[in-house]
Structure formats: C-alpha cells, structure tokens
Amino acid sequence: MRELYARLKERCALGELTQQRPNLGFVTLPREQLRQALTHLRDSEGYTHLVLLTAVDWLEDGQFQLTYLLSHRTQGRDFGLRVLIPRMDAEMDSIHDLWPTAATYQRELREMFGIQFPGSPGVNDDFILEGWTGMPPYRRDFDTKRFSEENYNHRPGRETRDPTTYMKQQLYPGGL
C-alpha cells in the first residue's frame, strides 16, 4: 500500500494515506486529478474493479465527500479515492467511460444527494424514488421523520420507548 501511495504521489497531489487494514487504504485528492489517478490505478496498477461509488454529506463543512473504492482482484486489496466537492450546487465529473457501472451509482447519487453528473447516461432517470420532487432524502438537512409524518398516514397507538431504560425495567423490575 505504501509503495502504491508513493508511486501515485509522483503523479498527483495526494493527501495523507489512511490505512485501515493492511489491504485497505484511503487517500484524498483534488477533484481535477481524480480521473488521472483512476486511469492510472486501473490501467497500470491492476485495480480494475470499481467496488462502489458513494457520497458522505459533511453538512457542517458544506461539503460532499465522494468515495471511489477500487479493488485489485488478484492481490485482494482495496484502495479508496476521496474527493471533496462543495455542497452548494454540487456537481462532479462523470466516470462512466472508465467503468460503465459507474453510471448507475451516479444515477443513484443524483437522486439521493442531488449531486449532478453531467453527461452520465440516464443520470436523470428515476432510480428508486419515482416522481420525487423535493429535496433529495439523503442530504442531512432533510428531515425524514417530519417528511414521513407529513406524507404517510399514521396509525395512532404507537409507543416508542427508550431501549436502555425499558430493558432495565423489564429485566430488573425492582431496580438495580
């Protein structure tokens, strides 16, 4: 992983290497160099499999973090590239020409986070939420509880208990 990091560092401006397991590492890099790094990893380093493309909403920082996780099939190693993009009018370059499967991930991200991927095939089609017009539900400022209460009929009589106190009462009725 270290050697890979060193080799990659010669080409792109990389952030720190976060090594979570001997065979799993993450690195942050600027948006412009993502494509170059991905191409290099795919064609020269053997990371041929795009495992997933996902997003994290850093609401406080006003940023989305996109994670591109690649896998080396024969060595059994995974390497993740992270890109931070501004939350406002979020937009990212499509990589569907590198991995056709990416188009599906990008379609999902467009729907769930509202991140635009211009040029990605079918990216504006409905993925799971058919006919959804409001704020994308995976953004953290989207209040799912409130949305659910406003939109879906509710059956009265539902009780919610705090699991810790409730189990204590059940298991030790006399008090601990």
């Binding site: 939420l129 539900p137 879906y152 059956r155």
Partner: peptide, 19 residues
C-alpha cells in the same frame, strides 16, 4: 405493514397498509 414498524420515520415507506 401495521404501523410502519422500524421504518416508521422513513421517507419512502407507507405506514398503514389498509389505507
């Protein structure tokens, strides 16, 4: 299906099937 179960606050699931 009865009252939403653990998806009672989900953005995408119904909570009362009999409606």
């Amino acid at each position: 299906t009865i009252n939403g179960g653990m998806y009672w606050d989900s953005y995408n699931t119904i909570k009362r099937l009999d409606d």
